[in-house]
């Protein structure tokens, strides 16, 4: 009872806090104009920019929605290909010893290279179209997925494997019935991390070379000195990223938690 009361108190504080922050922000940037030439536009300006950008094509040639769709298409394509190839690679690496010994050292090194460092290579190889962007996402997702699936399967309880062996399960059956199910939570963690990496990757790729997409939009906005549009872009990026993670968590819920 008492706890509930104090919880409400802190909810109030949080709420008042948000109101105060937005008000102070508004006063500082719009009324007193403390930031030189609109470096931090007020919350009202951000909102206006957001609404107008839904229809307006300036300065980057496309409306907000087109940018969003463009970024999402690339991310989802690259992500799915990365996961579809990365999952089995990780599984085989973890489960078949010769592959493990041979491929693991390479991956130990590859995971130390940030996915973004491959952008120049891919740009030279594939140009800057959708295929190239998807390839950048693919590299980002692939390595992350492999590493996480691999360590998930490696964590399988040895006792469970022995039990399965005693019951005469074949190597492949043990993988299917014991190792994979118990690795599922790790796999989903990996999928979530990779999704974050993919979303980060597309923004980076679009900052460097693109004609559309949210990363391109904020890059152009910067060139025009439009801080308001940059911030709108950042918030949109953040929001979509959070939404994608949320979707994946729903899927995880069905697969992992729904069983028990």
């Amino acid at each position: 009872m008492k706890n509930r009361l104090s919880d409400n108190k802190y909810k109030m504080i949080a709420f008042i806090n948000i109101v105060v922050v937005i008000t102070v922000w508004y006063l500082l940037s719009e009324v007193f104009q403390v930031f030189r030439n609109g470096m931090l536009p007020g919350p009202n300006v951000i909102l206006e920019t957001f609404i107008s950008k839904l229809n307006s094509k300036s300065p980057d040639g496309n409306t907000l929605l087109v940018h969003i769709v463009s970024s999402l298409t690339v991310v989802i394509t690259g992500y799915i290909i990365g996961v579809v190839i990365g999952l089995p690679t990780g599984i085989f690496m973890a489960w078949y010893r010769p592959i493990d010994y041979l491929v693991r050292p390479v991956f130990d090194f590859l995971r130390c290279i940030p996915g973004l460092a491959w952008i120049p290579v891919i740009t030279v190889w594939l140009g800057i179209d959708l295929k190239a962007k998807a390839a950048i996402i693919f590299v980002n997702v692939f390595v992350g997925t492999v590493v996480n699936v691999y360590s998930g399967i490696k964590q399988t309880d040895q006792v469970k494997i022995w039990v399965a062996q005693i019951f005469g399960a074949s190597h492949f059956e043990i993988l299917k019935r014991v190792a994979l199910p118990s690795a599922l939570p790790y796999i989903f963690t990996g999928l979530k991390v990779s999704l974050g990496m993919a979303w980060l990757g597309i923004i980076a790729a679009e900052l460097l070379a693109a004609q559309s997409g949210l990363g391109y939009m904020i890059q152009v906005a910067r060139n025009f000195g439009r801080a308001d549009l940059v911030i709108v872009g950042m918030l949109t990026i953040g929001l979509i990223g959070a939404f994608l993670t949320y979707l994946l968590e729903k899927v995880e819920h069905i697969f992992v938690k729904g069983r028990n």
Partner: peptide
Amino acid sequence: LGSALIKPIYSVLRSIPSIAWIPLAIL
């Protein structure tokens, strides 16, 4: 109290990928 004061702003900033800060930082 700290949570009530910081969490709201933190949650918004947290969802923005690091790379997306580059243009604003340059501005």
